[in-house]
Design a protein around this nucleic acid. Structure first.
Length: 416
DNA sequence: CGAGATTCATGTGAAGTATACCTTTAGGCTTAA
DNA sequence: AAGCCTAAAGGTATACTTCACATGAATCTCGTA
């Protein structure tokens, strides 16, 4: 056995310290939270009208009367969630002042494994109200009883905010909304109003008429921001978020322009700014220049997708992996070849065999493909090839580099 | 040549199964009177 | 006898499977012009 050469520790320690120093040293942010998506600023620009409308609709709650149900829709990044949070905070403050019992739970229906079935939405709601509910095992209607039990203890108003409600309905149907709206008839003291928030402008159209009429007693549309408005918002927030002199010339204009091209998505503009800042910081520079915005744009798009893929279950990842591999193979071929469900399933089975992962049936994989389509990661269209059957044509409309990254990630997490 | 029948490959709905977890209940054991 | 613990019984939600039928246009078939 060889004896290791002893290294005197202090030298090394110093070295380590120096490395970290360089990370801690500089920060170009003054208050980064201002740019993060969950942040609710003191004043909200260019949404005065919507705030007023929401406020006037919810105002009766301060007289302990049930406000109308409200349906809010508009594209992503048009300030829907922001306005609701803002009004919610104001409302709660006022209610506290006047000693009025008012609860406004907020649930995001999109979160997988948290609120994507009727049971789980209910469970989440009860949890928010301080109750405890097991993840499985109870009949759903018992959860309703439990909810009623918790709520109906005193005279109060409950305004339930269901964000990304279109996602939930797309997955589990609209029956649960009907149940929610009917809940009031079972309650004696408490009254419930529902606020539904949707990114899908056509969401109301395919809703059961009964649900539709009761959910959208009031409707508010959030139009996209225009370039000037986004610029205002960015200016306002970046003033607080960054230290002086960090933003180079034309940065805000560029972010705004990019976001406007993408249907006036303010969240995107803010993310761009924040991510650009993070990249600059990581590279130890002290000024955000235009090319950092481009970098941020790429990074952002890939981050969103990568993140949503990482959290998928194993079988979903395996399916996606199969799709990516096949797309790659097909691309190398001379003739254009389209990708169908059957091909994916065959490749999937192969991969399962090789990696000794148990395989699902085609029925299930078909559903998984449909779910990926819903997530927008792939693009699947059912087509009929006439004599040669009916299937889904699967496409992957993502940039080349991103696909590479996804592939790497998948190989990594699947251990292939 | 054209209308209607056929065909294929898979979409899709319904019902069934496995699993994980819940509550209820009956039985057994302990304990205190 | 009352109280407490445990394990079995009976129930549910969820993810998945099984079964069976639905789809829809290219192709085939066959009667007719």
């Amino acid at each position: 056995m060889k004896k290791e050469k002893f290294i005197y520790p202090t030298k090394r320690d110093e070295h380590v310290n120096n490395i970290f120093d360089s990370f801690i040293q500089k920060t170009i942010f003054k208050n980064k939270i201002m740019l993060q998506s969950g942040y609710t600023p003191e004043t909200i620009q260019h949404r005065e009208n919507q705030i007023k409308q929401v406020a006037s609709i919810l105002a009766p709650s301060l007289r302990v009367e049930k406000p109308s149900n409200l349906f809010i829709y508009g594209l992503t990044g048009t300030g829907k969630t922001l306005v609701i949070q803002y009004v919610k905070n104001q409302l709660l403050r006022k209610a506290k002042e006047q000693k009025i019992e008012l609860i406004i739970p907020y649930i995001n229906c999109k979160l997988r494994k948290v609120a994507d079935t009727e049971y789980r939405i209910l469970a989440e709601l009860i949890k928010k109200l301080g109750g405890k509910v097991p993840a499985t095992g109870l009949p759903t209607d018992q959860l309703y009883h439990k909810l009623i039990e918790i709520i109906d203890t005193k005279k109060q108003i409950l305004i339930l905010v269901l964000d990304e409600i279109d996602q939930a309905v797309g997955k589990i149907g609209d029956e649960f909304l009907y149940n929610f709206t009917r809940l009031n008839t079972e309650l004696t003291k408490t009254q419930i109003s529902i606020i539904g928030i949707s990114n899908d402008l056509k969401f109301l159209d395919n809703l059961d008429p009964r649900v539709k009429s009761s959910l959208s007693e009031e409707e508010i549309l959030f139009p996209p921001y225009n370039a000037l408005q986004i610029k205002d918002i960015l200016k306002e927030r970046s003033k607080e978020a960054f230290k002086e002199g960090i933003l180079g010339e034309g940065i805000i204009e560029k972010c705004a322009a990019l976001a406007v091209r993408d249907h006036g998505d303010a969240r995107k503009a803010l993310d761009l700014l924040r991510i650009a800042g993070e990249v600059v910081e990581r590279e130890n520079k002290d000024k955000i220049t235009l090319d950092y915005i481009d970098k941020a744009k790429e990074k952002m798009e890939s981050d969103i997708v990568l993140n949503s893929i990482e959290t998928q279950p194993r079988q979903f990842q395996l399916t996606l992996f199969s799709i990516i591999q096949l797309i790659k193979i097909y691309k190398k071929e001379k003739e254009e070849r389209r990708l169908f469900t059957g091909d994916v399933y065959d490749y999937y089975l192969d991969t399962c065999k090789k990696t000794k992962i148990s395989s699902l049936t085609q029925r299930r994989v078909s559903d998984i493909i449909a779910e990926f389509d819903m997530l927008g990661i792939i693009n699947a269209k059912t087509i009929s090839n006439g004599r040669y059957g009916r299937t889904r044509e699967i496409r992957l409309d993502l940039p080349e580099e991103l696909i590479e990254k996804i592939e790497k990630n998948l190989i990594n997490s699947l251990g292939i």
